[in-house]
């Protein structure tokens, strides 16, 4: 009797099987294979493509010795902190905050403009950013219109250009998260503080921010992960150049694996990124778990 019940309970889980198979075959397997291949000399073509041999931690040792890798780590951290943690996050909060006070048509217009950049397919957004920052691009034409001299932004300041482009592209996400969060802040609390004579900044720091802190944490985690994985925007705008000046980890992994055909080395870089993603993922899950308690 008891046995039949557990069998029936297990049968109930049958509909989960297609999803589990898909996730195992196409997500879990590549992750595991990545860790495995990063310890081999697997290559795109030639002898090592067919029979890769085990090379131990050689790829990882090369990572540390290769000057391109630490440089890419620094650039990735810069990119994530400047464009996601500071740019998208703060600007999103600012816009969301201003929108709660703005008139409806104004906030609708601003919202549409911000969200449009986010809804556009990534390749189109990347082209638009390229057309804006390139040598004969919109920015230099605008500067020329007021008599100022432009620069070849993508060559002279590639990181500034991709950071600004990513802020433009991704702020909508933070804005939407914070709009939802601010809408949940009870009006009477901040009105009570207003009666007690708290100024705008005081209300923001002591009332609003603590009330939406879980949204802030969630948002920070998600925009960090999204920005960590940005490839197309950088690839279209600068292709990682000039001479690796904007090569973040995803771009480096792509170059090593597909341009130079070194799959083993490419997967070593990919594995570092995967581990980073998992660390953030676990932290995110912890955060949500703690909140539910």
């Amino acid at each position: 009797m008891g046995e039949r019940r557990t069998v029936r309970q297990q049968l109930r889980l049958l509909p989960v099987v297609p999803s589990v198979l898909l996730l195992l075959l196409f997500l879990a397997a590549p992750v595991l294979w990545s860790f495995h291949a990063s310890f081999t000399n697997a290559a795109l073509t030639g002898r090592n493509a067919r029979n890769p041999t085990w090379t131990g931690v050689e790829n990882y040792a090369r990572l540390l010795g290769d000057s391109a890798f630490p440089a890419a780590v620094v650039l990735t951290v810069t990119f994530v902190v400047a464009s996601a943690v500071l740019g998208q996050n703060l600007l999103g909060l600012l816009i969301a905050g201003l929108m709660t006070r703005a008139r409806k048509p104004v906030s609708a217009a601003v919202g549409t403009a911000v969200v449009a950049a986010w809804v556009l397919p990534e390749i189109v957004a990347a082209f638009a950013a390229y057309a804006y920052f390139s040598k004969d691009g919109t920015l230099n034409q605008l500067l020329g219109g007021v008599g100022a001299a432009g620069a070849d932004w993508l060559y002279a300041y590639p990181m500034v250009a991709v950071v600004l482009a990513n802020i433009w592209r991704g702020t909508a996400f933070s804005m939407l998260v914070y709009r939802a969060a601010l809408a949940d802040v009870p009006r009477d609390i901040s009105e009570a503080a207003l009666m007690d004579g708290a100024g705008g900044w005081q209300r923001l720091v002591f009332i609003t921010l603590p009330l939406i802190r879980s949204s802030i944490a969630t948002n920070l985690m998600l925009v960090t992960l999204q920005t960590l994985a940005v490839f197309t925007l950088i690839w279209v705008m600068t292709a990682g150049g000039p001479s690796n000046a904007s090569t973040t980890l995803p771009v480096l992994a792509y170059q090593e694996a597909f341009k130079f055909g070194d799959i083993g080395y490419g997967t070593a870089i990919a594995s570092v990124l995967i581990v980073l993603g998992l660390v953030f993922g676990i932290a995110y899950v912890r955060l949500l778990k703690g909140e539910k308690r």
């Binding site: 196409f26 997500l27 397997a29 590549p30 992750v31 294979w33 990545s34 291949a37 697997a42 985690m221 992960l225 960590l228 994985a229 940005v230 490839f231 980890l249 995803p250 992994a253 792509y254 694996a257 597909f258 799959i263 490419g266 997967t267 870089i269 990919a270 990124l273 995967i274 980073l276 993603g277 998992l278 953030f280 993922g281 995110y284």
Partner: peptide, 14 residues
């Protein structure tokens, strides 16, 4: 949370 761009190299290999 898995960064999809990160797994493209191993997915290609697979």
């Amino acid at each position: 949370c898995l960064p999809v761009t990160a797994i493209m190299v191993p997915v290609y290999g697979l």
